[in-house]
Design a protein around this nucleic acid. Structure first.
Lengths: 240, 240
DNA sequence: TAAGAATACTTAGAGGCATTAAGCAAACAT
DNA sequence: ATGTTTGCTTAATGCCTCTAAGTATTCTTA
């Protein structure tokens, strides 16, 4: 009897959900995160106020859903950047993923800032869409790095060189995630990640524009410094 | 007739201003930045609502004043850390300043996050207390680095190695601030600053606690990597 | 196909926040 | 002693979140 597996009702509901998130995003882009309120979103789409509570339990959940959207979009962009190089070439694939991440960040400043520079809002449950999408995002990089390690291990510090505190924390993390890399390798990866990600956070938080209004070259320099630590050959961006 | 130069009235006013900022800070620490509202602050000190508008033009100005307080306190802490080493020893003084900055950040997480991870609120006028105090803070590091450079120049990249975009932006910055350092030296300083500051931002934004619940050692490692780039000898923290 | 149930939405309302306006009382200046 | 300035109050507007109650539409099913 059902021409489609989900039923018309559910389809309409999903469409409305998508429309709500789109309206919220529009408000974010055009008027800033402060403007993304339940009332404003409802108004934006011709509904009035409390109707949205049929779709989201409250403001926080709406925010979380929108954030998850952004994470998924960013993940897709990063995967596309990665896949612009053939499967075996882990070096170019990683650099492509990093560049895609920044490109998405600078072409979607409001969204990136919303995701990463948010005041770490309410206690986040590990099974919320936001956290799920966040882990998927991390996964893209972690997987590629793990494959890189397996195909061509990069140089790591000697076991004794690692500070005991860092070692034990990495040990706990490796055990918890079941990642196959030795702690020394994770350490190298994390220090690269911290530099890259920290730079991006500062760019989006406008903490550096007093000296660098345009950070493209600074980012490339960061990549050039990071690449050899992962045993990669740095290559300039393909669009140069 | 005035026994004191400022007059009793003005003194009382200043005391009330200080009390307001203190109440705002208490709310921030105990209930988060969201709780710092005009009404809540007024209630906190037994006044009712609109009274605060005799002291601050609005919510934004109150926020700015509190931020300036934090900047000043952080600046004093950094200066103290710097001055725990004699005036001529620029290396230890710089490391001391960096460590003091992190110590203040981790012992005042709410305040540091408020200052540095804020959504870069309203358009900031360059003469606001917040911006003034912010520049004073930067100045502490810049001055010490400039003295270091003059007393013992650190290695810099050859002029041709600098990306033209980076070079021209640094040129503009150097000209605007009238700092006496060559652009290559500023470049080294900035890349060190970005790493240090980016790490701190990520720590306070809780972006790294999924792997590093305790980042003390990670920070020291960052210092150890940065020190040689400024021609400094890294020395472990004094409290070890 | 005619109830009955679920769904989508509405308005009303409580309580909080930012901010302006109007007013009162104490402190100050002359 | 008087008039002004200052510190505060309450009232009121308009926005926000969120709950409650009610209506209409759609789906289900007997």
């Amino acid at each position: 009897m059902a021409a489609q597996s989900v039923g018309r009702r559910e389809r309409v509901r999903q469409a409305t959900l998508a429309e709500i998130r789109a309206a919220a995003r529009r408000l974010l882009i055009e008027q800033g995160s402060q403007a993304v309120t339940i009332n404003a979103v409802a108004r934006e789409m011709g509904m009035s106020g409390p109707a949205l509570y049929h779709y989201f339990a409250g403001h926080d959940e709406l925010v979380g859903a929108v954030t998850a959207d952004f994470f998924r979009e960013l993940t897709a962009a990063v995967e596309a950047g990665r896949d612009s190089h053939p499967p075996g070439e882990h070096g170019p694939r990683l650099l492509g993923a990093c560049r895609a991440m920044r490109r998405w960040a600078v072409t979607h400043r409001a969204e990136f800032g919303w995701v990463f520079a948010s005041p770490i809002t309410a206690e986040r449950r590990p099974d919320s869409p936001r956290e799920l999408a966040g882990r998927d995002f991390e996964q893209v990089f972690l997987e590629e790095v793990a494959e890189l390690w397996r195909s061509r291990p990069f140089p790591v510090p000697a076991p004794g060189e690692l500070h005991p505190s860092i070692r034990s924390q990495l040990r706990a993390y490796a055990d918890a995630t079941g990642m196959g890399l030795p702690v020394e390798a994770i350490h190298v990866v994390m220090s690269c990640w911290i530099r890259l990600y920290g730079l991006l956070c500062m760019e989006v938080l406008n903490q550096l524009d007093f000296v660098y209004p345009d950070m493209e070259a600074v980012f490339e320099e960061c990549l050039r410094e990071i690449a050899p630590r992962l045993g990669l050959d740095y290559e300039g961006p393909s669009d140069l």
